[in-house]
Design a protein around this nucleic acid. Sequence first.
DNA 1: TCCATTTATGACACCGATGTCATGATATCG
DNA 2: CGATATCATGACATCGGTGTCATAAATGGA
Lengths: 370, 370
Amino acid sequence: MATIYDVAKHAGVSPKTVSRVMNGDGPVGDKTRAAVEEAMRALGFVRSNAARMMRAQKSGIIGLITGAISTTGLNHKQQGLPDLFIVQGIQRALETSGMTVMIADTAGRQDRVAPLIDTFLSHRVEGLIYVAEYHQEVSLPQLPEDTPLVLVNCFDTKGTPAILPDDKRGQYELVRRLIGAGHRRIGYLALRADMVAGQLRPQGYREALAEAGIPYDPALFAHTNFDLPEAGPQLLWDSIDRMLRLANPPTVICCGNDQMALMVYGILRTMGRRVPDEIGVAGFDNYRVIAETLYPPLTTVDLPYNAMGVRAGERLLSLIAGEEAQTSAPPPTQSPVCVAGPVLWRASVAEMRPTNVLHMKPNGRKTDEV
Amino acid sequence: MATIYDVAKHAGVSPKTVSRVMNGDGPVGDKTRAAVEEAMRALGFVRSNAARMMRAQKSGIIGLITGAISTTGLNHKQQGLPDLFIVQGIQRALETSGMTVMIADTAGRQDRVAPLIDTFLSHRVEGLIYVAEYHQEVSLPQLPEDTPLVLVNCFDTKGTPAILPDDKRGQYELVRRLIGAGHRRIGYLALRADMVAGQLRPQGYREALAEAGIPYDPALFAHTNFDLPEAGPQLLWDSIDRMLRLANPPTVICCGNDQMALMVYGILRTMGRRVPDEIGVAGFDNYRVIAETLYPPLTTVDLPYNAMGVRAGERLLSLIAGEEAQTSAPPPTQSPVCVAGPVLWRASVAEMRPTNVLHMKPNGRKTDEV
DNA sequence: TCCATTTATGACACCGATGTCATGATATCG
DNA sequence: CGATATCATGACATCGGTGTCATAAATGGA
């Protein structure tokens, strides 16, 4: 591969002049510039990043580690959305900064994280981003203090900057919207209680009920380990069956995520219930392949992975920029940033407005305007 | 960040000795080794890859470009499986080689490919892999001839080494299996004809029919642009409706992919048909989030993304290794490698063996043994 | 016209690791 | 015991850009 020395010789100038042409430092004469550019083209010159960064002591590389690292040993079906969207967001935020993003995948193996970090450090990355597959707590090995780190979709106990989905808020908004549509008996099939989303989303559900003055009914709520290889569907079936046999059954069922909603569709229909006429279904995640392809399309909450990625990228850039300014500032133990996504109202839930109470009022959108 | 000079000074040895400790070149005395290792630990030393690769003229980096680059302007819902699986396979194949995989995502923008390649070249990657989101033809910019390139899930007209899914074979095996299960009227809802998979999979379907002596019935076949934003479901509904109204309707419907199958489930059930009792459904891709979560689980063909990734990684390694051996060998215009995946038989298709003809025979598995 | 800038370019050192060669200290063998 | 092989280590050059400083030519203002 050609070097600037080759280019310099070919153009009859010094290497430094070639460097100037590339970087636009000092002034260069028009004829000289033309000769250099011609030489570069003729030789197919590509600058060596290694040499450049060695001198400049800046790599221009951001390290991105992604993969299904679980604090508990979960099976791999239990995954969130493709983290691709987070990665896209990160790249969007970084593409104007001139940084190159190096991505490494752990392939779900916790023991690969430390070596990957070392590899990144040996490439002198200017910052690191760790992306988890779903909202969880993690614990990463200690980094050199001059290497900024941002966590996405996860958090630790050391106060490392983190970008998280606002699970509680999203579920809250969705349930508020359901109430606004006239639903009063709202079932909730939650994810496992040991998952962060299995805790936060139900909280949002209960807050929305409380705000509307609807009492929380334990009979309408269940944690369901729906993705167990064999028993999962049966557990889900039982939970649904129990709710539907109630004297006052739910008119809509919220699912812990879209994947569960997909299974619930099949179960409800096998039971002979029509969606959404007899019972509505709502999800969470806006896992588009599912939510938009389901028939009818699924009402759900957008998990704003792209936006989270953008925020993470921006956060990291500011950390990198501020690094030298505040050398020994107090540790930036800020609270994590929560990003909320919009409710996406689709055909899987019926509007019940024209019923009883609201039907009476002339301008019937009272509860919707909370 | 500490350098080997710092380490050398701290340990009271020469830089070269530090290098020897790291690389295990020449012999090093036990006490010296201990002193050096202690110094490295004390200083938190991490070797600079830039300096190393500059000297070695080897980067140890493989460039991986991925993203939804389409030759035609498709909407982004039309995507295959998460390419993550291909990436995982590639990393699996490369992890023992000591290479670092640098991944860059194009975020679906064709114009980003060329700059990304330049970035990779400036990092002196030893090889490049291009991964497409779904089986398609691509055209990449010219690379320096000493940089090996492997295409995955796509191919070009220049004879670049490519790893492809064996769409035809997979569909053939699935249909053979359906026939073996007693089905004779097999509907096929194909992907758009301008997609590679929309051509190859139907070919496999027809070959399997032909082999079993079942005449091809055009009334049981339709290309359906099911993922059009609005009209898609309606088009699909019409196609299905037409088939089911036939005098001799299909007992099972093959779908172009799992996503289409997901939509077909909803439509069939809205029509009041039970799956699989009244009609079977089969997909293609083994898009696990869909295929395993659908109720009942979907019979489909595995698109062996992981295996394809492994093959691609191995292929690239052999190209890199052989590079110097056969400097001016004839251009390696080999035919692409096709990787076939297994048929995954799940509950969405009923076994019809104990029916009429076969029921008569004592050892009734005649057509299954093709 | 002469000195002060500005412009255009080159010489040279340097970044950090490592290959090559040299050197001194032991170990081995006839 | 001397000659040679082996071990342990260091000096130095090198990879390819780029920062620093020097130098030479062109320009400009008094």
